[in-house]
Nucleic acid binder design. Structure first.
Lengths: 240, 240
DNA sequence: CGGCAAGTTGATGACAGTCAAGCCGGGTGG
DNA sequence: CCACCCGGCTTGACTGTCATCAACTTGCCG
């Protein structure tokens, strides 16, 4: 069905440049291939792993779309990220040897699993691989700090604007249209991610649409004026 | 002045158990000692590094207290963490080779600097060291996800309560009193960290004090009822 | 075609932000 | 040694943004 799903090695995979092997030479890449223990299919709505599961492998998304979330004892759930093709899942499990979050497929998906103990072994042999792994983990930390900035102070429309811009940028690097796309998640999931309620997300969409910055029809979004979207704070002042 | 400031090796350092060498055997620890290029003094209010600086080393706090923060173009600043003895600074620099945040001393401090390229070299030789580094980075990711949960949905008093509990726990593992301590940061810095304004922090302190859960006198805090502090959500319902 | 999940929109209210005034405490200089 | 000053903190009154509750619409899938 999906052609990329039939390739079996990183060397043949179109996602190479955005995935774990990014920046490695051919020989090094072949070593990674040797790590890929297996490919796993996850159906829409199913979990790749859950909080508390033993941590064995990292996963790279091959096709499909995931959300990761943490929850506290009082039942509140916080979506911590959305992952698309080429992105890594499972880094939170390294700390204690148990996953500290849930990873759920938002559409039928396929991931490559990489045993972490073997990845460490290969990292010891290939400095580029080692450094690359460290960069990946550091990137996740930097990304999380950006989310803290967003959650700590931004208003609803700013949050949504930066969410859309982030999504657009990630789609663009994968060769998809950056200004027109289909959301894979519900308003409630976006709200959980951005620290808002679903009604507020809905209203923020409507408002950005009314300002002529985007067009929204349910899950279909088109960015009409990316420059204005990047300056939503000012636009808000302008509208007042 | 400070006795720990005169020791020169990890083996002699009292912080061993809470610092980078935690969990390593004596031989491995000696390898870490070989990494410690130098010790750096940072005066209260001075930066250990700033956003954009070249990333060369990680730092472990020896004495003193730091805050790290990121800021966006519109000038808003978000404190991303407070670091005390034994904790690591600088992980955000690995990704791009440039620090992505500021690290400022909240009181006169001393840190050990560890050249990251050398740490990677040693990691390749000592699997335990390698895994330990990965655990450290993963812990930072897990911590950040916890902050996202806090920033995403908690009310002011819950945020302050979990901040105080976290501080208490970290002080306890270092042998300090967990129920009585002096805050090293201002209300404004706490507010930035917790996504609130300083007035709200002040009110939250007053309210927790009025409920008999804590005692506050400026920067001096005493936890009177740690169990109640852990259940502030319920207490709030109770008070209504 | 029916049923249900997801999304929109409106009315109202709560919580934290803003603005403002005053207090406390520590350090400095007369 | 005291008075002053200034940063940090507290408290009050009012406002604004987002949450909540509720009614209704849309669109999808069996």
């Amino acid at each position: 069905m999906n052609p990329t799903a039939t390739t079996t090695t990183c060397a043949e995979c179109k996602l190479q440049a955005h995935c774990l092997p990014a920046g490695l030479d051919a020989g090094e890449r072949d070593r990674i291939d040797s790590l890929m223990s297996k490919r796993i299919r996850v159906h829409r709505g199913d979990a790749l792993y859950n909080n508390g599961d033993d941590f064995v492998s990292l996963y790279t998304v091959r096709t499909g779309f995931f959300k990761t979330s943490v929850s506290c004892d009082s039942g509140r759930e916080q979506v911590t990220g959305f992952q698309m093709a080429g992105e890594i899942l499972g880094l939170d499990g390294i700390h204690t040897g148990h996953h500290q979050s849930d990873a759920v497929a938002l559409e039928d998906a396929e991931v490559c699993s990489i045993r972490f103990d073997r990845l460490e072994t290969v990292s010891r042999e290939i400095p580029a691989m080692q450094h690359h792994l460290h960069q990946l983990m550091s990137r996740e930390i930097v990304r999380d700090h950006g989310m803290m900035l967003l959650l700590g102070g931004m208003r609803a429309e700013e949050r949504l604007a930066s969410f859309l811009l982030n999504l657009a940028a990630r789609l663009r690097t994968r060769g998809f249209s950056a200004c027109e796309f289909v959301l894979r998640m519900t308003r409630e999931e976006i709200g959980s991610y951005l620290g808002l309620k679903l009604e507020t997300i809905s209203r923020a969409f409507s408002r950005l649409a009314a300002l002529g910055i985007i067009e929204v029809q349910q899950k279909h979004v088109r960015i009409l004026d990316i420059h204005q979207l990047e300056h939503v704070e000012q636009e808000e002042a302008l509208a007042a």
